[in-house]
């Protein structure tokens, strides 16, 4: 009896089921169920006060689609994400190259590198809502430290290129506000992208690089023809991360501009929050945020497919 019991317990298939069940159950209850509820909300008239179910078909989506604010949010979400990803991946590649460069084994060099690493990691380590509060001060309409530097460089102020005003008012002008938000996204995503790229670079077999060196390949040739193609899969994964975080992010816009001036920096998550929570219209809020999902799904599938294909070659 005991032997049968222990064989049962030791059965690897049973163990697989036992091991997989809790996580699966949890995901079904806390991701699957709310996801279905969001779908139901989006085809109903649910509000915060009354969540009774009245089926209205795709009317919420049609209403949302016709709102100019939604169109702005859609365009902004895409342009912010794409521009931010391009900037991030370029900066992260440069930074990863710099940080994987072999350094002199002097003590001062190592301490310096440690401090540099610490400073470079800070944007990623700090809770985003707190560091964005820091940027809110950096972009302040009167006391912005950035404006101060520009004034000292004689770029801003009466009789200068960007004058005569003493302040740029970063978050008050459409184009500058957009640029500020993209900048903060790049600032915050670059450390993670760099770490992921460094992981990729460190996994390149050294004999490949030695071989390239023996063959007389110079730095840039090795970089573009050996290193970059080899880390392409992991670079795509880093792009995917950046895309997800930026596309679904509420924090940066919520704290910096709340979508303003007017709707010039409105994004889909921000609009969904304004409609669904501030406005109490759960149905339309859910409809707005549902636009996010197919995009992320598509990007994820395409990037992951490309990544796994690049790996085989």
């Amino acid at each position: 009896m005991n032997a049968i019991m222990s064989r049962w317990i030791d059965d690897s298939r049973l163990m697989g089921i036992v091991f997989l069940a809790p996580a699966t159950l949890y995901i079904v209850l806390l991701v699957g169920l709310p996801f279905v509820t969001a779908l139901l909300f989006s085809v109903s008239t649910a509000t915060v006060g009354d969540a009774s179910f009245n089926y209205v078909g795709l009317r919420n989506f049609a209403n949302v689609w016709q709102t100019p604010a939604f169109r702005d949010a859609l365009v902004n979400t895409f342009s912010f994400t794409v521009v931010a990803q391009i900037c991030t991946i370029i900066l992260a590649n440069i930074l990863a190259q710099l940080l994987t460069t072999p350094l002199p084994q002097r003590r001062s060099g190592r301490i310096g590198m440690w401090i540099a690493r610490m400073l470079l990691i800070l944007p990623w380590a700090t809770p985003l809502s707190l560091s964005v509060v820091g940027w809110l001060w950096m972009f302040d309409s009167k006391y912005s430290p950035i404006d101060y530097i520009f004034r000292e460089l004689a770029l801003l102020g009466p009789g200068t290129v960007w004058g005569p005003a003493n302040n740029l008012i970063w978050l008050g002008k459409p184009l500058l506000a957009k640029a500020s938000i993209i900048f903060v996204h790049v600032w915050r995503m670059t450390p993670l992208a760099t770490v992921i790229l460094m992981a990729g670079l460190s996994s390149i077999p050294t004999d490949l690089l030695d071989q390239a060196e023996v063959d007389g390949s110079r730095y840039f040739r090795t970089l573009f023809q050996v290193k970059l193609p080899l880390i392409m899969p992991i670079m795509l994964i880093s792009l995917l991360f950046g895309f997800i975080f930026t596309f679904g992010d509420l924090t940066v816009v919520y704290i910096l501009t709340r979508g303003g001036p007017i709707t010039h920096t409105l994004t889909l998550p921000m609009y969904s929050f304004l409609v669904g929570i501030d406005g109490g219209n759960l149905a339309q809020g859910a409809a707005v945020s549902l636009f996010i999902f197919p995009v992320l799904l598509l990007v994820a599938v395409v990037l992951l497919r490309t990544a796994s294909r690049a790996e085989i070659r």
Binding site: I27, L30, V31, L33, P34, F35, T37, A38, F41, A51, I244, F247, G248, L250, L268, P269, S272, F273, G276, I277, L282, G285, A286, S289, L290, I292, F293, L296, L297, A300, V301, L304
Partner: peptide
Amino acid sequence: GMLMFIVYLVPPTLLFIPLFRI
């Protein structure tokens, strides 16, 4: 594995409304 990753893609912005009710 792919499925796990796709679940991770479901953004909080999509789920906070129903989760709030729960």
